[in-house]
Amino acid sequence: MIPSDVPKLPGLGRTWYKRGAVASCGLVVWGWLQQRRAIRKKLLNPPTPAAWSVGRLAAAFAVREYPSEVGARRAMEASADLHRLAGGKERLR
């Protein structure tokens, strides 16, 4: 749908819309490549140990559970469910 402020020349509106769509697709690819290059550059130049320690300390107070802790907790809960008997009694080991 062409807005009313676009000049009424035949085919002009659709041409510019197509060019804009192609340009936006190109910019998405360009942005993705720039992001990947920046990440690669940061991986090649890691932070100093003091910066790593500050980040780790901030994460310890900001993040409730690390993904490894979540996986371990779920595995322990699944294991506990396997060892329960009917009626909620614990199996003797």
Rank of each mutant, 00 (worst) to 15 (best):
V63M: 07
P7L: 01
K18E: 15
M76Y: 08
L12W: 05
A62F: 09
W32R: 07
E65I: 02
L43P: 00
R56Y: 13
L44A: 10
R36T: 03
R14S: 06
L44P: 01
K18I: 12
L27F: 07
A86R: 11
G31S: 04
R64G: 03
Y17R: 13
R91G: 01
A78I: 01
N45M: 08
V63K: 04
V63G: 06
T48I: 05
L57T: 13
R56T: 12
S68W: 08
R64Q: 04
K42P: 00
Y66D: 11
R91P: 03
L27C: 05
G11R: 00
M76R: 14
R64I: 02
L82G: 05
L92D: 12
A62R: 06
A80D: 04
K8W: 10
A60N: 09
P47E: 04
A78T: 03
D5S: 15
G26I: 05
R40E: 06
G87F: 01
S24K: 14
R74P: 02
K42G: 06
V63T: 04
R93A: 07
E65F: 08
S4E: 15
S4V: 11
M76W: 11
V28E: 09
G87W: 01
L57F: 13
Q35R: 11
A38E: 03
A80E: 10
W52R: 14
V54E: 15
R40F: 00
V70S: 05
A75R: 07
E69I: 05
T15H: 11
L85R: 11
P67G: 03
A58Y: 04
R93M: 10
R56F: 11
V54D: 14
T15G: 09
A80Y: 03
R73K: 12
L12M: 07
E90Q: 13
W30T: 10
A38H: 00
C25I: 13
A50I: 12
L57E: 14
S79T: 09
A86E: 12
E77S: 08
A51K: 07
K8F: 10
A62E: 07
L43S: 02
L43V: 01
P46C: 02
E65P: 00
G55T: 10
L12I: 07
A50L: 14
S68V: 10
A72R: 07
P67R: 02
G71D: 07
P49K: 04
P10G: 01
D81S: 12
D5E: 15
S24M: 10
A80C: 03
R19E: 06
R40A: 04
S4T: 14
S79V: 07
V29H: 04
Q34S: 12
L12K: 02
G31F: 02
P49Q: 01
I39W: 03
Q34Y: 09
A50F: 12
S4F: 13
L85G: 06
M1T: 12
W16Q: 07
R93D: 15
V29L: 15
V70A: 02
A51M: 06
G26C: 11
S68F: 11
R14V: 11
P67A: 00
A23F: 08
A58I: 08
G13R: 00
A80V: 05
G55F: 05
H83D: 13
P49M: 02
L27N: 03
R19F: 06
P67F: 00
T48C: 07
S24W: 06
A50G: 11
A51F: 02
K8M: 14
D81V: 08
A50D: 15
G31I: 02
M1D: 14
E65N: 09
R19M: 09
P46I: 00
